[in-house]
Each structure stands twice: as structure tokens, then as C-alpha cells.
Deep mutational scan, measured.
Amino acid sequence: MQGVVKVNSALNMRSGPGSNYGVIGTLRNNDKVEIIKEVDGAYEIRFNGKVGYASKSYITIVN
């Protein structure tokens, strides 16, 4: 499943599905991501070869 990031500035990509996990990357508006699955209000995603988590509130599914 594919998604597009929709933010005003940037969205943190984290090592786990919550803000208490470390930041492993930054997503920008209109970045395209692969959605692997939904976990606790976040999506597990793949972006630029990395797998991490981002809030589903800022990712629009575009299948």
C-alpha cells in the first residue's frame, strides 16, 4: 500500500510506533512512502530503504 506525507513542515520517522522512540529520519510534504502495516495509531513504513514508524494522521493512502 502506498501513502503520501501531508505536513506543513516535517514529520519524524521513528524506530517505534510512538513519540517516545528515537528519530531515524525525516519526512517532508509529498514524500511517497510504502505502508507496511498499522500499529497503535501509526504506520510502519518504508522510505529510502529504511523501515520505521510515522503518525498515520499525516499520511494519506493513495492506492
Rank of each mutant, 00 (worst) to 15 (best):
Q2K: 12
S57L: 14
V39Y: 10
K6P: 01
K32W: 12
I61K: 06
E34K: 05
I61R: 06
L27M: 06
A54H: 01
G41W: 12
I59Q: 00
G18E: 07
R28N: 12
R46H: 08
I35A: 01
N29L: 08
G3R: 01
N48W: 05
Y53H: 02
G3H: 02
A54G: 03
N30E: 09
K32V: 15
N48S: 07
G52T: 01
G41C: 10
M13A: 05
Y43D: 00
E34M: 11
G22P: 15
K6L: 08
E38H: 03
V51F: 08
P17H: 05
Y58F: 13
L11F: 05
I36S: 03
S57H: 14
L11C: 15
K50M: 12
E44Y: 12
N8Y: 08
R14L: 11
I24N: 04
V23H: 04
I36Q: 04
V33G: 00
Y21N: 09
T26E: 10
Y58H: 14
G18K: 07
M13I: 15
V39C: 10
G25I: 10
I61Q: 05
N63C: 13
I59N: 00
P17W: 06
G52E: 02
E38L: 07
I61W: 03
I35D: 00
G49S: 06
K37H: 08
N12Y: 13
G18L: 04
E44H: 10
V33E: 00
V5W: 00
P17F: 05
E34S: 08
Q2C: 15
G49T: 04
G52N: 01
S55N: 14
D31S: 06
L11R: 07
N48I: 04
I45C: 02
V62C: 12
G41M: 08
V33K: 00
L11M: 10
G25Q: 10
V62R: 05
A10P: 13
V7A: 12
S19L: 14
D31A: 07
N12L: 14
D31N: 04
Q2A: 11
N20K: 11
I61P: 09
G16F: 04
G22Q: 15
G52P: 00
I59D: 01
K6E: 06
P17S: 05
G52R: 01
E38Y: 05
L27Q: 01
N63Q: 13
I59M: 01
G41D: 12
T60E: 15
N8D: 14
R28V: 11
G41L: 07
K50I: 13
S19D: 15
E34P: 01
A42N: 14
G49F: 03
P17D: 03
G16R: 05
A10H: 15
R14Y: 15
D31W: 04
V51A: 06
N48V: 03
K37E: 05
K56W: 03
G52V: 03
F47D: 01
V7P: 03
M13P: 02
N29K: 07
G3N: 01
N48T: 03
N63E: 13
G52Q: 02
R46T: 07
F47M: 04
I45M: 03
V5M: 02
V4M: 09
G16C: 07
V5I: 08
N8K: 15
K6N: 11
G18R: 04
R46I: 14
G18M: 04
K32D: 04
N8L: 11
N30H: 09
Y58T: 07
V39E: 06
Y21H: 12
N48K: 12
Y43Q: 00
Y21V: 05
G22H: 14
R14C: 11
R28W: 08
I45A: 00
V51Q: 09
S19E: 15
S57V: 13
V5L: 03
Y21F: 13
Y58R: 06
E44G: 02
V7S: 14
R14F: 13
N29D: 09
S57E: 15
